[in-house]
């Protein structure tokens, strides 16, 4: 009886150890895959930042050196990560699982000017998407 119980116990611990080991290996491979994916995303993001910043510099009649563009790309990536976290929290706070336009606009609330820009951008988007034009009477601000 005792031997049997011992054996079962050892099998149990053996199994759980093996399961832990498998779990760890699984985790490691998942981490490796997601890291490779993150690198890829980062590169794509960098490329588009460089394209945008070169176009913008050209518009201003300036040149931009490569390290500066890379710096801005890294900054923008970190900013995007922070934005993702903020926006998720806002959506969660509103009891939603999907992020709305309002969440993104809210994330820029510290900078009034930026807030206004994003608001008008969102109005433009709404106007574009709804082909049926809804005319809303607004009291003119004077």
């Amino acid at each position: 009886m005792e031997v049997g119980e011992d054996a079962i116990a050892s099998v149990k611990t053996d199994n759980s150890e093996r399961a832990d080991l498998l779990m760890d290996r699984f985790r490691l491979s998942v981490i490796a895959i997601s890291e490779a994916e993150a690198d890829l995303l980062m590169d794509r993001f960098r490329l588009s930042v460089i394209a945008i910043s070169e176009a913008e510099a050209e518009k201003l009649g300036m040149e931009i050196s490569k390290p500066v563009a890379m710096c801005i790309a890294d900054l923008a990536f970190k900013f995007t990560e922070l934005l993702a976290k903020d926006v998720e929290l806002f959506a969660q706070h509103a009891g939603r699982k999907s992020v709305n336009m309002e969440d993104v606009i809210l994330s820029a609330h510290r900078n009034e000017h930026l807030h206004g820009l994003l608001k008008s951008f969102s109005h433009e988007l709404k106007g574009k998407e709804s082909t049926t034009i809804k005319k809303r009477r607004r009291p003119s601000l004077k």
């Binding site: 923008a76 995007t80 934005l83 992020v99 988007l125």
Partner: peptide, 19 residues
């Protein structure tokens, strides 16, 4: 968590303004 398409467009605009 997911994001709807309009939210993504506004986010793109925000990051573009940042750059």
């Amino acid at each position: 968590t997911t994001a709807n398409s309009r939210a993504l467009k506004v986010s793109c605009e925000l990051v573009r303004i940042f750059v």
